[in-house]
Design a protein around this nucleic acid. Structure first.
Lengths: 207, 207
DNA sequence: TAACATAGAATGAGCGTTCAATCTAGAATA
DNA sequence: TATTCTAGATTGAACGCTCATTCTATGTTA
């Protein structure tokens, strides 16, 4: 990856990466504003500050840009999920982090792109695969976290029961993406509190 | 719906309505498969069994077709919400109907179109307005229902508290639209049961 | 005949993509 | 140092195609 010759500055790799990121950043902006299909290469290239043709030096085609955006967006979700497992007292950590998670989901700008991605996943097999694989990873992490919390509280659940709880937890978070579009005026802190209580109740459900 | 006069064939009004519905039906199919923007008038017209130009006798433009599809989809949601209020014992009705509602939301075909609609609402002001107005109506209905249930159980909540509960209830249902795309293999009946319990817990939350 | 239903070709704009030409800056040479 | 060479970065016009929409002509019915 690194340039071994000291006489030539480390241009290539880092410059190319920066250029790629520049394109992805512009593409995300266009996708948010117009959607995947109405966002044209011409618009993306103009926002990225380069010619349309040059984009094809960094991405094979438009589909590859979409895939990269999707992967980038999901990566942030996965790191967030992984953070839960690192906490010492997991139950408290989960519920306290929930408020933060709720706030993230309620940002209408990023919510629009996330919804666009899932809608695309429903019909584009390539995007669908990326999304489903990332979701499976997140579910695995969340399942372990919930199992540990329930064990500490004295519940011994079947894996299927844990999976169902993961789904309900996911509904609470992901439902917010739709809510913030359908009702932009909702009370953020009030809803966050109610969701924290709902999560707490969920973790106390009978086996 | 039927023409009562046997001498005249059922032309004008009913024929035009049928033609319109034919177009809407074909459009919904295309929108599900390709999304709003990648679904072309040519594809819609071919599925509807008529020429591209003829579609413009029934709709001003493609945007009008999208708006009609959105309005039609939301109408079904609103009648479902209104049904809750008609029930005699509302709490039981709400929770029992929930299982049915969960099943509806988990159909991946209709889920794809619903997500497409909300994603479009995030960037298309016209669609956004239709969606937000329908949502406001649903929230009003749900708020009254929840208020009555809570009153019967002896809670007197502030309107804001009720609104927050409506949002969490909506998250549980609408989150399923994303879940069924991201994890098509989830256990429908298991999740339905957990969600029923979560709704029950939500209705028992402290004021 | 008058009015409407329908078809399908025509139009012009915009799309993703390609590609030959140009620029740029460091390496090599003198 | 001054000049030439070279390879990658970058451009923007051009291509073939599809799009939404319009227009004209042809049934079809009352």
């Amino acid at each position: 990856m690194q340039n071994t010759d000291p006489t030539t500055p480390p241009i290539d790799a880092s410059r190319a990466t920066a250029r790629r990121q520049q394109i992805l950043c512009a593409a995300a902006e266009c996708f948010r504003e117009y959607g995947f299909h109405a966002a044209s290469i011409a618009k993306i290239s103009s926002i990225a500050g380069m010619s349309p043709g040059h984009i094809y030096h960094y991405f094979e085609n438009k589909e590859a840009i979409i895939a990269a955006i999707v992967a980038q967006d999901l990566e942030s979700l996965m790191t967030m999920t992984a953070e839960f497992r690192a906490a010492a007292n997991i139950r408290t950590a989960l519920i306290e982090r929930a408020a933060e998670g709720v706030a993230d989901q309620l940002d209408p700008v990023s919510a629009g792109l996330k919804l666009e991605i899932v809608a695309e996943a429903a019909r584009n097999p390539h995007v669908g695969q990326i999304v489903r694989e990332a979701d499976a990873t997140c579910r695995r992490e969340l399942a372990i976290t919930i199992r540990d919390i329930r064990r500490t509280a004295g519940h011994e659940d079947s894996p299927a029961a844990i999976d169902d709880m993961v789904e309900v937890l996911a509904c609470l978070f992901e439902g917010l993406l739709l809510r913030t579009i359908r009702n932009p005026g909702l009370d953020h802190s009030g809803v966050a509190l109610r969701i924290q209580t709902a999560i707490s109740d969920l973790l106390n459900q009978p086996t």
